[in-house]
């Protein structure tokens, strides 16, 4: 009886491992974000703005994870969609539409549509040309926003954005409490969506396409269609992250579209590890904390350390921190297995 039970458990354990992206890991991520964020709010109530920043960056990195980590589309211009979302949310508010939730949705939809259109430019090329096309698109949008000062405020950005209380109840306050809980809710919702997606047939198909697009195609998968949808969704999420930034900081500047932002989010994702959702979140936390620490030591030359991080990352841990953790866990499990073996 007892033996049967253990056997059953062993089988389901094997089944979990047979799915690279097990649901428990995804649900664990939701809990980790919720508990981590609430813990921060409890113990460091003065750092809510930073916490909201981290959440927004995490959301942005998650959107890139869908595009790069899952679909395998290498992008150096992801800020284009983040920035579009930020400007849409900001402009709507300035035009008098101050309701936050619909504003955020609009940011996501517009950015998503842009991403959908842009994805058709990315279908034919391989890594290198995709890199350059995304880079070019990002730069184009940045330059366009710079020149269209009548709309975007040019280098001055959008100022004096005001947002209504969320659901008519929670006004944005000076301490960033509302901003924090707002960002947390949106991020949790997005992560739940992404977990669902990652553990769905679609998520599996994307990982397969990334691993070997030719093989996936010859199994009957419409590769282009999957990529277009993934890129559109990723762009939409990036737009929501951008809209969130605009609404919570009530300011939009040109640098939401800057190349640095695209490079930064790429770093965050690679730092944490792409393709498993956890990496994007871990990367965002580590990156922002490192930024805070380093920037307080060397105010000006923080980008030097940013660069050094990228270099070291590629040389020594190209699977990111979650990759390192997984290797470690694997080794420990092996060792534990070896120790148990002689006894049985």
């Amino acid at each position: 009886m007892a033996d049967e039970r253990t056997a059953e458990i062993a089988v389901s354990g094997a089944e979990d491992r047979a799915f690279g992206l097990a649901e428990p890991a995804g649900i664990g991520l939701l809990w980790a974000i919720a508990l981590g964020a609430l813990g921060t709010a409890w113990f460091f109530p003065l750092h809510l703005a930073l916490a909201a920043d981290i959440l927004i960056l995490a959301l942005f990195a998650l959107s890139l994870d869908l595009v790069l980590g899952f679909a395998g589309i290498v992008s150096l211009g992801h800020a284009a969609f983040f920035g579009t979302g930020a400007y849409v949310a900001g402009l709507l508010a300035l035009a008098g539409w101050r309701e936050p939730l619909s504003g955020l949705l609009a940011a996501g939809v517009v950015a998503g549509l842009l991403g959908l259109v842009a994805s058709f430019l990315l279908l034919r090329g391989r890594d290198l040309s995709r890199l350059m096309v995304t880079l070019g698109l990002g730069m184009m949008l940045h330059e366009a926003a710079n020149k269209a000062a009548w709309l975007t405020g040019g280098a001055d950005g959008l100022q004096g954005i005001r947002i209504d209380p969320i659901a008519g109840l929670f006004a944005f306050d000076l301490f960033g409490r509302t901003a924090f809980f707002y960002s947390l809710s949106v991020t949790l919702l997005a992560v739940a969506l992404l977990v669902r997606l990652a553990t769905s047939p679609f998520g599996l198909a994307l990982r397969a396409i990334r691993a070997n697009a030719l093989r996936a195609r010859l199994l009957g998968i419409d590769v282009e269609r999957h990529l277009v949808i993934a890129h559109g969704l990723g762009a939409g999420l990036a737009g929501i992250a951008g809209g969130l930034l605009a609404q919570t900081t009530q300011f939009v500047s040109l640098d939401v579209l800057a190349f640095q932002r695209s490079a930064e989010v790429l770093l965050v994702l690679l730092l944490g590890g792409a393709g498993n959702l956890w990496g994007a979140v871990v990367g965002a936390v580590v990156f922002k904390l490192a930024h805070e620490t380093l920037a307080s030591i060397t105010v000006h030359y923080w980008t030097f350390w940013l660069g050094a991080m990228l270099v070291v990352l590629v040389l020594f841990a190209s699977d990111g921190m979650t990759g390192l953790a997984r290797q470690l866990a694997h080794r420990m499990r092996r060792r534990a297995g070896a120790r148990r073996a002689p006894g049985s």
Partner: peptide, 26 residues
């Protein structure tokens, strides 16, 4: 990094770009 994929190379060299910019600034 000769044998690495393009994403690694790009990440790596962007890192160098940032380092170069900060160094020049300093």
């Amino acid at each position: 990094i000769y044998e690495r994929d393009h994403l690694d190379q790009v990440t790596f060299t962007i890192g160098l770009v940032f380092m170069a910019i900060a160094s020049a600034d300093w």
